[in-house]
Simulated scan of single mutants.
Amino acid sequence: MDRQRSAAALLVGAGVLFAIYPILRPYSSELGRAGADAFASPLWIVAHVSAMIGFITLVLALRALNVGTAADVTTLIGVALVLPYYGAETFALNVLGADALDTGNYGAMDLAEPIRYGMTQSVMFGVGLVAIAIGAFLVARRVACWQGWVFAAGFVLFLPQFFAPPWMRIAHGLLILAGAVLLAARTFERQEISTTTGA
């Protein structure tokens, strides 16, 4: 029963972190002075670190949820592939933006594109997010409830939301939060039913 409580708490924690990410993330054209301001902002660091911790918390939540080896391993592999990209985007772009503001050399902001979209990192990032989506799908199939499908939808849409406007990205973060909270509530409800039946 403690394991189920831990799973519920971790799910909610992951949902909150994934909601914080798009809400706090500075949005801009990401070019010139506007891009430098966004990258150099402390909120850039806070938002992206929240996402990274969210992915780690997701792995721990699924382990506690006991949804099967396939979901656990697929999600773990996905997170392992995604985190290096987030690390580069979080810290390298923050330094790039701060340096551009300090020197007034906004042409250096052109380096953001190769940092983000080089072949190796793009493939790792894309494959990682697809693996996480598959893991979430396996979770939904295993728990066999509508709450699980809401949870899975958030991660299936994780890659497409990067091409959406800010308000849709924020809505996506709230979708992940809703799915995580719903699945946590369902997990807790099942625990209560099991406890009552056992008594």
Rank of each mutant, 00 (worst) to 15 (best):
L182F: 01
D110C: 09
I170P: 02
S28R: 01
L62Q: 07
G179C: 02
A61Y: 00
A9D: 08
S6Q: 14
E113R: 14
A144K: 12
G13C: 04
L159K: 03
M109R: 11
P166H: 14
V12M: 06
F18N: 05
V67G: 07
Y85V: 11
R63N: 15
R142E: 08
A19T: 00
F18P: 02
F55V: 14
P160W: 00
V16E: 04
L175M: 02
P166S: 07
F188C: 11
H48K: 09
G118H: 10
A70F: 08
T196Y: 14
V127C: 10
L58D: 04
A14N: 02
L175G: 01
T74K: 04
A140D: 06
A70Q: 07
F155R: 02
R190A: 09
E89H: 12
L96N: 14
A98D: 08
G87Y: 08
A136E: 05
A51C: 10
F155A: 10
F91Q: 06
A36N: 08
N94C: 13
G118M: 07
Y21A: 10
N94F: 15
A100Q: 13
V79K: 03
L159C: 03
R3D: 13
P114D: 10
I132S: 01
L10N: 00
M52I: 12
L183G: 05
A8K: 06
F155C: 05
R186I: 09
L96C: 14
G107M: 13
G104K: 07
S50W: 00
L182K: 04
A164S: 11
R33Y: 10
R116A: 14
L83Y: 11
R25Y: 06
E30L: 15
A144M: 09
F188R: 14
M168P: 01
F55I: 11
L65T: 11
T57N: 00
L83K: 11
Q147K: 05
A80P: 03
I53M: 04
R33C: 07
S29A: 05
L93P: 01
R169W: 03
A47F: 09
L101S: 10
A108V: 09
E30G: 13
I193Y: 06
T120K: 11
A136Y: 03
A47G: 09
T197W: 10
W44A: 07
S41E: 13
A144V: 10
I132K: 00
I45P: 02
G15M: 03
S194L: 13
D2V: 15
L96E: 12
A38D: 06
Q4N: 14
G154E: 01
L111E: 15
I77G: 12
T196F: 13
M52T: 07
L101G: 05
H172Q: 01
L62R: 02
Y86F: 13
V181L: 00
V12N: 05
A184S: 07
Q147M: 04
M1G: 15
V73N: 09
I77R: 04
T69V: 11
L174A: 04
Q121L: 15
I20H: 08
A38P: 00
A88C: 15
R186C: 10
A14K: 01
F125A: 09
